Simulated assay, not measured.
Amino acid sequence: MSKALISANRVVTGPAGQLIADGSVLVDSGVIAAVGPTVELDASVAAQVPRVRCPGATVMPGLIDCHVHLAFDAGPDPVSAVIDADRHGLSTAMADRAQQLLASGVTTVRDLGDRDGLAVALRASIDSGAVIGPRIVAATTPLTSHGGHCGFLGGEVGTDDAIRAQIARNAAAGADLIKVMASGGALTPGGPRMWEPQFTADQLRLIVREAARHGLAVAAHAHGTETIAQCVDAGVRTIEHCSWRSEEGVVYDPAITRRIVDNDVSVCRCVSGDWQLFLKQMGPERAQRMTEVIQEMRAAGVRFIAGTDAGVPGARFGDYVGMLEFFASLGFSNAEMVDSATVSAAHALGLTDTGVLAPGMRADLIVVDGDPLTELDALRRIRYVFTAGRPALRPDNG
C-alpha cells in the first residue's frame, strides 16, 4: 500500500520514551507524512485511505541491529560454513537470515563482515523489491592483519598501501562503512589473542583518514584496552565489543571512557540472546567485573547501541529481545533500551531518516502487542512490520 493510516493505543515517537496516547501514523509513498492523535488524523485523512487499526498495541520505530554477520550461520563452526559454501547457497541463506531479522522487528541491520560483497548484492535485491528484508548497511570485507581475526573473509593487509587499496576496493564494491578488526578475536584459532592489537596507532589513523576520503565512517572491533584507546584517538565512529581485555583480565580506564563520550563514539557491546550462558562460562568474578564496567560506562554517559553479533556461534538471527534483556538485568530502563535500538542506533550509523517517528522520516516502523516501555517482552509480539512503508509482516502472512 502506498498510503495508510496506522492507529494504536500508543505511538512511541522517540527518543526517551516520548509517546502519543491513542495515536496514529500516516504513511505515504514510503515516508511518514504525519504523526498525532488518532482523533485528529482520522478526521483529516481522506476516507478512502486504508486504516490499519491495532487495539491494545504500540506503534514504534523499527528496530536496528547494529552488528550482524549475515554470512555466518550461528552454528558451532561458522568459519567453515562460510568458506565451504558456494555463492548461490550462501546468498540464499543470507536472504533467509535477513528475513528472520525482519520478522523479529528489525528493519535495519549493519552487516560488519561478509564474503564476496554478498551483503551488498542482497541490499540491492531488497532495495529493488525483488526480495523482502531489512535495510542493510554493509561494511563488506573487514580489514585485518595477516593471519588475523576473520582473515578468511579476504581482508588481510600488512602495509599502508595495502590498507589504502583494500579500503578503495570496499568503497568501489558499495560499502557503507569500513570495518577494522583492530584487535584479535575468538573466532579465529591461531590468530592474535582478543586483547592483542592487530594494527599500530598510526595504521588505525590511516584507516580512518582513508575511509573518510571515500566518505565512509569506521567501525572498530576492539577488545583490548590499549586498542580501544587507539581506536578512540584515531577517530572511529563505533567500537564493537569494547570489553577492556588485557592478558591479566579486565582493565577498565575511565579516562578512555571520557574520550569516548567527548568524541561521540558509540559502543556496541554485541550481546546475543545466550548471554546467561556466556556469563556462566566467564566465571563469577570476571562476569561481575564486566557488568560493573558497563554500568560505570553508562553512568559516564556512553551511548550504547543495540547489536546481537548474529551469526557467530550461539547468536541466533531471531532473538533480538534476548540481547536487550541483558541490559535490563543491569538496570537499564525500557526507554533507554528502546533508544539504543532506534534513535541512538540511527545516530551511530549516520542514518538521518530513521530511528524516530516524525514527518519526513522513512516509514520503517513496527506494531507490537502491549507496551514495550513497561514490558520488554512486548517486542516479541510483533503484529506488523513496515519497511519504507511496505508491509513486510502481517497477521495473515506471518
Rank of each mutant, 00 (worst) to 15 (best):
V109W: 03
G23I: 12
R51T: 09
I136R: 03
L19H: 15
T140M: 05
R269A: 07
P50Q: 06
L393F: 12
G62P: 04
H241Y: 10
S333G: 15
I163S: 01
T238C: 04
L153P: 00
T352E: 15
P37W: 09
R209G: 02
C54R: 03
E248C: 07
V52N: 03
G307E: 00
Q230A: 14
I126S: 05
A33V: 09
R383E: 13
A98S: 12
A300P: 08
T188W: 07
V59C: 11
L279S: 10
A33H: 08
K3Q: 15
I32N: 03
L143G: 00
V39W: 11
A358T: 11
G14C: 14
L279I: 07
G331L: 10
A315K: 08
S7H: 03
A95R: 04
G360T: 11
E156P: 08
A220L: 09
Q281A: 12
M290N: 14
A229R: 15
D262C: 07
T159V: 11
V232M: 09
P254V: 09
G89R: 06
R390F: 09
L376M: 13
T140W: 04
A201D: 14
V385W: 07
A103H: 12
Q230D: 15
T108M: 05
T238A: 03
G75H: 10
P142W: 08
H69I: 05
A98V: 06
G190H: 13
C268Q: 01
G322K: 04
I239G: 00
I64H: 02
Q295W: 07
P254F: 09
D161T: 10
D262H: 14
T108C: 11
F327R: 00
E248S: 15
A124G: 11
A8L: 06
Y320I: 06
A358K: 13
V343G: 01
R213S: 15
A168S: 15
D339F: 05
R87Y: 12
R110H: 11
R51I: 08
A34C: 12
H149F: 11
L216P: 01
L63P: 00
S128G: 09
T159C: 10
S24T: 13
A8H: 09
S329P: 03
L277N: 13
R209K: 14
D253W: 00
I260F: 02
A95C: 08
A212K: 15
Y384D: 02
P189R: 14
Q99Y: 08
P78I: 02
F152H: 10
A182M: 01
R51G: 10
I256R: 01
D176P: 03
N263H: 14
K280F: 08
A388D: 04
E156N: 13
R213V: 11
I83M: 11
D396V: 08
T200E: 04
Q18K: 14
L279G: 06
T108I: 07
V59P: 04
V271L: 03
R383D: 11
V25C: 02
G133M: 04
A388H: 06
D202Q: 12
A217H: 08
V267A: 02
C268Y: 02
L101V: 07
I239S: 00
G307I: 00
A162P: 03
T38W: 08
S344I: 09
G398S: 10
R51L: 13
G155E: 06
D116I: 01
G155T: 10
R289L: 12
P197D: 05
V343W: 01
T342M: 07
V232F: 10
G14D: 06
T38F: 10
P50G: 07
